[in-house]
C-alpha cells in the first residue's frame, strides 16, 4: 500500500502545491514537506508529498545504470 510517484512542484500556495508528472498537474498537500521550493521533485502518495527527492542522488544512480547499460553494448 505504498505507491508513490515522483512529481515536480509547479506552484506553492501556503501548504498546498500544484505538482506535475508527465504533463499532468494536480493539487497536493505539502504539510509533510513544508520547506519544498518550486522546481523541486517530491514523492506523491495519496495526495500528499511525503518526501523531497534528492536530485543529486537520483542523477548519481542514473549515471551508474547508464554505465551498466553501456556495458551491455546497446
Amino acid at each position: 500500500m505504498c505507491l508513490a510517484v515522483p512529481v515536480r512542484v509547479l506552484q506553492i500556495d501556503s501548504l498546498e502545491a500544484l505538482v506535475e508528472v508527465g504533463g499532468l498537474a494536480r493539487q497536493a498537500s505539502i504539510m509533510l514537506v513544508p520547506d519544498v521550493q518550486v522546481g523541486d521533485y517530491v514523492l506523491l502518495h495519496a495526495g500528499f508529498a511525503i518526501q523531497k527527492l534528492d536530485e543529486k542522488e537520483a542523477e548519481e544512480t542514473i549515471r551508474l545504470f547508464e554505465e551498466i547499460a553501456e556495458g551491455m553494448g546497446d
Partner: peptide, 15 residues
C-alpha cells in the same frame, strides 16, 4: 516521466 523512466531502462536491467 522524469525519475521514473530512467529506472526502467531495458539494457541496464539486463546488465
Amino acid at each position: 516521466m522524469r525519475f521514473i523512466d530512467e529506472f526502467r531502462n531495458s539494457a541496464a536491467g539486463r546488465g
